[in-house]
Simulated scan of single mutants.
Amino acid sequence: MSPGDPVLSDRAEGGRRVPLLVWRLERPVRSISSAVLGGGIGECDWLVNATVPMSYDRDDPADHLREIAAALDLRGRGVGLLTGVDVADVVRASDGGVRLWATVGLGAPIQAASPPSEDESATRVGTVNIVAWLPVRLGDGALVNAVATVTEAKTQAIRDLGLAATGTATDAVCVLCPTDGPVADYAGPRSTWGAPLARAAYDAVRRGGAVNLTGTQSWSDRADGAQPPPHQAGGGGKRQW
């Protein structure tokens, strides 16, 4: 049972309609995530990837995501992600049974082990959010391994886009798998399931990053007057990917 593609919806906030992606899962799945809401290892009933304006200054993002989930009537345990980019630009990829969705913001690239530079600014849009589904139950170690595999593939894609960076300071990952069935113990980039996971993550980040680096990087800028991309022109209401 694979989760379907997310539904693109929106919410009223700050006098604007702000976009968000919603996954309503038919049954609970196993998850590992670095998200601000629903992080760690556990079961997951839903996911939200929500755009926020670049003026976002709430110091309680987990509570904010709970409010968003409640307004959507999402119940149970969920995972919530935030980003400054327009989640309408979600990129999906699939490989060998793995499915993956990424929203890619590369306006604030960093080298993880380098000291902060003077040109790093909190006002520059960033965040690469990745949600992945593997059709086999992963053991705890394999779940951790899967997060590492996604991260390595993301970094490879970013560098192949010409950036001397490992990611942004606010990237998040969520990996999902079934709660039952035979357990896979490995998810490294050369394992049975890690290899297609790496390829899907690389493909999505490479394609999404190419669009982000050549267009309007933040939803705020787009909402304040930049032309929307063709898939948004004349839009409104809910759209399904």
Rank of each mutant, 00 (worst) to 15 (best):
V22L: 12
L20C: 11
R27H: 05
D63L: 15
V52W: 04
R16C: 00
D10I: 02
L72V: 01
A35W: 01
L82A: 09
V22H: 03
V36T: 15
L37Q: 00
G40R: 07
P19S: 06
D89A: 01
A88P: 01
L20S: 00
S34T: 11
T51R: 05
E67K: 02
P61A: 13
A69C: 11
D45R: 06
S94H: 07
I32C: 07
V48N: 02
D73V: 13
G40T: 12
L74G: 04
G76C: 06
R24S: 15
H64D: 15
L72Y: 08
G39D: 00
T83V: 09
M54Y: 14
P53T: 10
R30N: 10
P28T: 11
V87M: 00
P53F: 06
G84D: 04
D60K: 15
A50N: 03
R58S: 15
N49T: 00
V52D: 02
L65Y: 08
A71R: 15
A71L: 07
T51I: 03
C44R: 05
D73I: 13
D60V: 12
L65P: 12
V29T: 11
V85G: 02
R77W: 12
V91E: 00
G84K: 10
V29K: 09
Y56R: 01
W23L: 01
E26G: 12
W46Y: 09
S94M: 04
V79D: 03
E43G: 13
G78W: 08
V85Q: 01
E26D: 06
V79I: 15
A50L: 07
W46G: 08
V91C: 00
R77I: 10
S55W: 07
R16W: 08
A71N: 11
W23M: 04
S55L: 08
S31K: 12
V18S: 01
A12P: 11
E43T: 15
I68E: 04
S31F: 08
W46R: 05
G76N: 07
H64Y: 10
S55F: 12
A62N: 10
L25M: 11
L72K: 05
L81C: 04
W23A: 08
N49Q: 03
G76R: 10
W46N: 09
R58T: 12
V36H: 08
R17A: 13
E43R: 15
